[in-house]
Amino acid sequence: MACHFNSRPLVLCLLLLILILSGCVSLRFDRINKGADVPTPAVGLKEGTATLAEALNHYGAPTDIIDMDGKFALLYKKSFYQGGQISIGIPLSDLLFQSSLRVEAAGNLLRHDLLALFFTPDGILVETMYERGASQPFWGSLWK
């Protein structure tokens, strides 16, 4: 059985709707990446024996150096930001009502990869802390 459904009015309406809503609906997606990938802790750099020179040779220059009243720490950090926003606004104040309709939803998530190396004043590695945040899922992390 042949179908005589005429899709032209529907498609034209869709096109018109896109044109009308183009000033009222907006979507925005952002991503900000700051810093290089943070290396995972090296197996060869053992706490208690590895030196500052070995750590600098392996990891390169840190993002921050922190003095801890004698001890000090090297921090390696990467920041990863993702954001999204949807905005729907229908200006009605000039036409029908005194107020306009506007709905907006936004979600922003900043995650970090961190490696902290703690040293004695003599430059011996005493502790290594590592956290990989950038690989965490966006939605799971946002709603946790």
């Binding site: 907006s26 700051k34 290089a36």
Partner: peptide, 19 residues
């Protein structure tokens, strides 16, 4: 685009530390 905006920023550093 008409209703969609995409923005991406990437910042990388050159760094030297001397003890």
């Amino acid at each position: 685009l008409v209703v969609v905006t995409f923005a991406n920023y990437d910042t990388q550093h050159d760094r030297i530390v001397f003890f």
